[in-house]
Design a protein around this nucleic acid. Sequence first.
DNA 1: TTCTTGTCACCTAGGTGTTAATAT
DNA 2: ATATTAACACCTAGGTGACAAGAA
Lengths: 221, 221
Amino acid sequence: ATRLEMKPLWEEFHQLGTEMIVTKAGRRMFPTFQVRLFGMQPAEEYVLLMDFVPVDDKRYRYAFHSSAWLVAGKADPAMPGRVHVHPDSPARGAQWMKQVVSFDKLKLTNNLLDDNGHIILNSMHRYQPRLHVVYADPRKDSERYAQQNFKTFVFEETRFTAVTAYQNHRITQLKIASNPFAKGFRDCEPDEWPRAHNRPNAFPFSPIPRMRVHMQHGTNS
Amino acid sequence: ATRLEMKPLWEEFHQLGTEMIVTKAGRRMFPTFQVRLFGMQPAEEYVLLMDFVPVDDKRYRYAFHSSAWLVAGKADPAMPGRVHVHPDSPARGAQWMKQVVSFDKLKLTNNLLDDNGHIILNSMHRYQPRLHVVYADPRKDSERYAQQNFKTFVFEETRFTAVTAYQNHRITQLKIASNPFAKGFRDCEPDEWPRAHNRPNAFPFSPIPRMRVHMQHGTNS
DNA sequence: TTCTTGTCACCTAGGTGTTAATAT
DNA sequence: ATATTAACACCTAGGTGACAAGAA
């Protein structure tokens, strides 16, 4: 059995239509795909994997005037589909179960020629992340038990549209509000999202919404 | 078999009398203890450990005028001595051998009540780091083979004196010159030590040795 | 005196959305 | 028009020795 961590946050994104950035160099997911595992055999070894399957065979575009996603045609051709093996694999059931398993090393890319082992996705397409738990069967004829040794878990609230730039402004705002690395883009009313209500010496409101300095290309001296 | 990484750097420190800082919160070693492993059974599992044994039962002090270490008495009483298990343990021989194994998560402390699992050492005492490779014998009566399943490696050039503040100024200078995290204390002639001769857009010399701003307590505003 | 502690400026390393320019 | 790219300011997270003050 498996439980998705940060489920309320995932659901808030899902409700708006989750978007995940893909870049040439590879971009992490936010929220990060994290799970808690139960019911494994503590002393046996398992491999944890993730892959991403297309939700449908459509290409999408975002209509800014109506703030809605529209079908823009048939899906672009796709690679065979890569797999991300959790770097702690293989490990014993006890290891996997004793703490939250985080796939924070997983990166998404739109570079069809990527050779960093990142997950290759088509921008403007919808994907469903999947978790696979593979039992490393020590028996010699383990192939005959492949079925029972291979379990797949799907959390529908983790579905998303791959994008090279955010389309829905409310997604952007929720990312900024909930991702600690985007704190520099918050205008006021500091965190609260990462349920970190333990900020030392901080007033409930930032009195002065900081003036951000945006850069210009080639305007340096 | 095992080979020490960064051996020339270790030897340069050893020649001056290596010192390692210990703090209450725990301090990493520099140089980091890193090894390359050979001759393991690729498919079998091993645990890698480090511990630190006193070189002698003496306490030392540093004579600044003569720039030399002097015996200052008998060793202070010591804890039973902790062990640092490499966080990738257990793992297969193939995993350990395919890349340099780095003990960069290991931290040294002088806090006898430490509960972060750090290595506890007495300041102003000398220690010898040791590496232990333990074969996870699958046989039921594996205890009977403990001898052959347990191999210890000692590199004398990694011996050091634990200190709360550097004593030998030449050690300080070599740390600053070779540790990337101490780059802020270099006065001129940038790196060269971490053999990183590939700095982009840099002149052979920094024209202006930066003025460092040292802080004062409570002198703000 | 000698040694230890806590705080700080200054780094490394790398994850954010923004923006202007460039494809398509 | 729409989608992608690359450089950037601004963060998180945490590893350095210097220094002043404290402790033994």
